[in-house]
C-alpha cells in the first residue's frame, strides 16, 4: 500500500485507494467465502450447540452455560488435557531433536543429497491413519516386526507386547509420529537454513566464530521465524492428535492415552452428548488460540519487520 503523502495529491490518491480497496476485496472474496462457509459458520454453530443439551438422537434443549460448568468439574477432561500436554511436549521435542540435525545434514551439498531428502520425506506422504495401521502391525507381538526381531537378535527372551503397557506403547507412538512427521519439519527448517546468506556465515567464520557459536548466534536468530512456523504446526498438530491413539491403542492401556480430541469424539459419538462435545471443542479452540499467540509473542515474530 502506498504511504500517505501530504499535499495536494491527496484527493486523487484517496479515490484511487478506495478503488483499489474494492478490487482487493474482490480478489480475496473466494477465499473469504471459503473461510466463512467452512470455518466461521461451523464455529458459530458449534458455539450455539454448546449452549444446549444436544443428544445425537432426539431434540436439543437450551441449558445456557451448564456444559461449561460441567467441564470445570470433569475429571476425565482434566486428565485428557494433562495427557495431551504431556504428549505435545514430548513429541515436539522429539520431532525437533530429529528434524534439526536432519535439516542441517541435507542442507549441505553432498553426493546423493536429493536421495536423502526424498527418503526422509517419504513417510510424510503416508496418511497418519495408514501409518498407524502399519505400526500396529510392526508392533504386533507375534506376527509383527519389532518384537520378533528383538527376539531373533537375542536381546529379549520373549517377544514383548509393545502396545500392552503405557510406557512402551507411548514410546512406540512417539517413534511412529517422529518417523512420520520429522521429514515435514525438516523441509520447513531447510528452507529457513537456505535463506541464510552464505556471506554471513563466511564473515562469522573469518571473525573466528566456532561451529557452535555460528549456530547459536547466527543460524538460530536468523531462523526464528521458520522455527516459529514449524513449532506452531507441530504443537497444533500434537494438541489435535487423535488417529494414532484411536487406531494403535484404542485409548491406550487402561484409558491412559485419551487425548482431548479423543475425549471430544467419545463424548459426541459414543455417549451421544453432542452439546457437551461442542462445548469441549470451543474450549479446545480457545486453548489453541492462546497457545499460538503465546508462541508468536515468545518468538517475537512480527515485531521486527525490516
Amino acid at each position: 500500500m502506498a504511504g500517505s503523502g501530504p499535499g495536494k495529491a491527496l484527493p486523487v490518491r484517496r479515490r484511487r485507494r478506495r478503488h483499489s480497496q474494492w478490487r482487493g476485496l474482490l480478489y480475496i472474496a473466494p477465499a473469504m467465502a471459503l473461510v466463512i462457509v467452512f470455518f466461521v459458520m461451523p464455529v458459530l454453530f458449534t458455539g450455539w450447540m454448546s449452549l444446549h443439551n444436544w443428544p445425537l438422537l432426539g431434540s436439543p434443549r437450551w441449558i445456557g452455560f451448564n456444559n461449561y460448568f460441567r467441564m470445570a468439574n470433569d475429571g476425565r477432561f482434566v486428565s485428557a488435557l494433562r495427557f495431551t500436554t504431556y504428549y505435545t511436549v514430548i513429541v515436539t521435542i522429539a520431532i525437533f531433536a530429529v528434524a534439526f540435525p536432519l535439516a542441517i545434514f541435507v542442507e549441505r551439498h553432498r553426493r546423493f543429497v536429493g536421495a536423502y531428502r526424498t527418503i526422509i520425506f517419504l513417510p510424510v506422504v503416508v496418511g497418519l491413519a495408514s501409518a498407524s495401521l502399519l505400526w500396529v502391525w510392526l508392533a504386533n507381538v507375534d506376527s509383527g516386526f519389532i518384537g520378533p526381531a528383538l527376539k531373533a537378535l537375542g536381546l529379549v527372551e520373549k517377544s514383548p507386547n509393545l502396545l500392552a503397557t503405557f510406557d512402551s506403547a507411548f514410546f512406540t507412538i512417539i517413534v511412529m509420529v517422529v518417523w512420520k512427521i520429522a521429514g515435514f519439519t525438516m523441509i520447513i527448517l531447510l528452507t529457513g537454513l537456505q535463506a541464510i546468506p552464505s556471506e554471513l556465515t563466511e564473515a562469522a567464520r573469518i571473525d573466528g566464530a566456532g561451529r557452535w557459536q555460528r549456530f547459536r548466534y547466527l543460524t538460530l536468530p536468523l531462523m526464528r521465524r521458520t522455527i516459529a512456523l514449524a513449532l506452531i504446526i507441530s504443537v497444533t498438530g500434537s494438541i489435535l492428535a487423535f488417529d494414532q491413539f484411536y487406531i494403535m491403542t484404542s485409548g491406550g492401556p487402561q484409558n491412559r492415552m485419551i487425548s482431548v480430541v479423543y475425549y471430544i469424539f467419545n463424548q459426541s459419538f459414543v455417549s451421544f452428548n453432542l452439546g457437551y462435545g461442542a462445548a469441549l471443542s470451543i474450549a479446545l479452540l480457545a486453548i489453541l488460540v492462546i497457545i499460538s499467540v503465546m508462541q508468536l509473542r515468545l518468538l517475537r515474530v512480527g515485531e521486527d519487520r525490516p
Binding site: N140, V141, D142, K158, S159, P160, N161, L163, A164, A169, T249, S250, P253
Partner: peptide, 9 residues
Amino acid sequence: VPASSASDN
C-alpha cells in the same frame, strides 16, 4: 495366555 491378549481390542 498369549502376550497379544493384553492389547487385543
